[in-house]
């Protein structure tokens, strides 16, 4: 029951997922649309429970057991709670039952997102520029013919993609574009076939119950 029922469900929904593409009959199309717009939407919405719940449980546990850096877990839990309250009761456009401004100072969900979430997320990824430049300096060496080829291509694409190159060497941006549209395309397409076949095989294994990793154990 614990294993067979999910495996049976994955087989049925798997076949059901493929059918509308293969059989364009309106009965199947209508059933497929209803399934997606109602069943998948609602189940998908509840899946948030898994993510948010896991985070809350992990940090509550950290606070309870006073593990290393447990104080920061309070920051997470409190910010999650405050943002949720503002969003749920203040409304998306700030017209909910909870006031989201004091005078000209607005603290609605959109303002919090643009003024806090965006700078945090964008900066977190921007610091990769520093690590990448340091790593490129340290490890990007022309040790062999293949490495030299990689290096040269990177240089052409790097320089060819900034406007200055068009002023200094007018043909360079076009050459960089040619690299992307011809040899790089050939390599990416060759690898793409392998990736696509691998993905299809995995999908088939999931539907047929051969791939069971998603069950999280067989008990």
């Amino acid at each position: 029951m614990k294993v067979r029922l999910p495996l049976l469900l994955v087989l049925i929904t798997g076949i059901f997922g493929a059918l509308p593409f293969l059989i364009p009959h309106h009965v199947i199309q209508t059933a497929d649309n209803e399934f997606r717009n109602s069943v998948l939407v609602i189940i998908g919405a509840f899946s948030l429970v898994l993510g948010v719940g896991s985070i809350i449980r992990h940090h509550m546990d950290k606070v309870r057991r006073k593990r290393e850096h447990w104080g920061y877990s309070w920051v997470l839990l409190i910010s999650l709670l405050i943002t949720s309250i503002i969003g749920l009761f203040g409304g998306i456009d700030g017209n909910g039952s909870l006031p989201t401004h004091i005078g000209n100072f607005h603290f609605d969900i959109q303002t919090i997102f643009i003024r806090m979430e965006v700078p945090l997320g964008a900066t977190m990824f921007s610091i990769l520029a520093f690590f990448m430049s340091s790593a490129a300096y340290r490890s990007f060496k022309a040790r062999s013919f293949e490495a030299t080829l990689l290096l040269l291509t990177a240089f052409i694409v790097m320089f060819g993609s900034v406007p200055l190159s068009a002023y200094l060497i007018p043909k360079l941006p076009h050459f960089a574009e040619w690299i992307l549209t011809v040899p790089s395309t050939a390599a990416k397409r060759g690898m793409g076939f392998g990736i696509a076949l691998g993905g299809l095989a995995t999908s088939l294994k999931i539907i047929l119950g051969i791939e069971r990793g998603w069950l999280g154990g067989t008990k």
């Binding site: 490129a136 060496k141 993609s161």
Partner: peptide
């Protein structure tokens, strides 16, 4: 800035090499 940064990164790679 993009142009300057690309040139700088290329230069560091050349220096390393």
């Amino acid at each position: 800035s993009q142009t300057a940064a690309h040139l700088w990164i290329m230069l560091t790679i050349v220096l390393g090499n």
